[in-house]
């Protein structure tokens, strides 16, 4: 179901050659601000293979968004090495390798929800019937059936965020970058979308980079959890999450799950105490 033939084959070929989806070494990013430099990322090393689900967790301001933006070529690193699907982030962006869910919905207010979801599809030149069909499918997936013709301001913040998730999924990118996509949702909807996302991931084998503040959410979804700490933003622990791939919400009560959650919490604590 790829839209851009070149993008798909690029990503797939790279992986079968043993190239990582994300390959980062010694990555540094310093913002020059009026009040002096802000060390948002410092000496980050990270590799992610095809099909992994990687969660990023860490205190506010530790550079999670910045790291995702560097991968998406929305921010330029000041040092280090970075490859996305074996090429520079810019090339990966130009061949539309990833879908990005921003921390806030970023819907265009003059478009209906349906038209917002169809925006990337219009830009990628899909035929009208297919755009309709995909918008319908993915709005249903995020439980927004019946809201197609509404404008963004007529939806709650959480509903808007779900629309933006549908928009990112609509063109079926092999790599998904999601910045706190479920942050604005209530627990029940969150659980539901966690399951939906897990199912989608299991079915499509996408690579997902997922920022969250919720430890249970990270453990439930991930194959790998990256714990970060602030000032300067860096990775302090990478935890393998080797629960079985087919998971249901009950898994959150199992000892294996709690053990991993415990380790993540310890990592976060260590990061915090580092600050004092």
């Amino acid at each position: 179901m790829r839209i851009e033939g070149s993008a798909g084959t690029g990503g797939m070929a790279a992986t079968s050659n043993g190239v990582q989806v994300i390959d980062i070494a010694g990555l540094t990013l310093t913002f020059d601000t009026a009040d002096g430099p802000v060390y948002a990322l410092s000496n980050v090393d990270l590799t992610i293979s095809e099909g992994e689900f990687v969660s990023f967790i860490g205190p506010s301001g530790c550079g999670k968004t910045t790291l995702l933006r560097v991968i998406a070529d929305l921010e330029r690193p000041t040092g280090g090495h970075i490859r996305v699907n074996g090429v520079s982030p810019e090339e990966a962006r130009l061949r539309r390798d990833y879908g990005y869910v921003f921390q806030s919905p970023a819907l265009y207010p003059w478009r209906t929800i349906e038209k917002n979801v169809m925006l990337p599809l219009e830009i990628f030149g899909l035929p009208k019937a297919e755009r309709r069909e995909r918008a319908r499918t993915f709005l249903e997936l995020v439980n927004l059936k019946g809201f197609e013709r509404k404008f963004p301001w007529q939806l709650s913040g959480g509903m808007q965020q779900r629309a933006s998730i549908a928009r990112a999924l609509s063109f079926d990118p092999r790599l998904l970058l999601m910045d706190e996509p479920f942050g604005a949702l209530d627990e029940i909807v969150r659980d539901h979308l966690n399951e939906q996302l897990l199912r989608l991931w299991g079915k499509t084998g996408k690579t997902v980079l997922f920022v969250t503040h919720s430890i249970p959410e990270a453990v439930f979804l991930s194959t790998k959890i990256v714990v970060m700490s602030p000032r300067p933003g860096r990775i302090i622990d990478v935890i393998d999450c080797d629960l079985p791939r087919e998971r249901t919400l009950d898994i959150r009560e199992t000892p294996a799950f709690l053990a991993i959650a415990h380790r993540v919490r310890d990592g976060l604590r260590a990061g915090h105490s580092y600050e004092d």
């Binding site: 998406a72 070529d73 929305l74 962006r93 130009l94 061949r95 539309r96 990833y98 879908g99 990005y100 921003f102 806030s104 970023a106 265009y108 003059w110 478009r111 925006l119 990337p120 219009e122 830009i123 990628f124």
Partner: peptide
Amino acid sequence: VLQRDLMRTYSASVADTLWKLRLPASV
């Protein structure tokens, strides 16, 4: 910035950005 970043993630052309973002926003 966010609205423009979205277009950038789609690597939208200048024309697409004009028609689908800048012009509607300027109405």
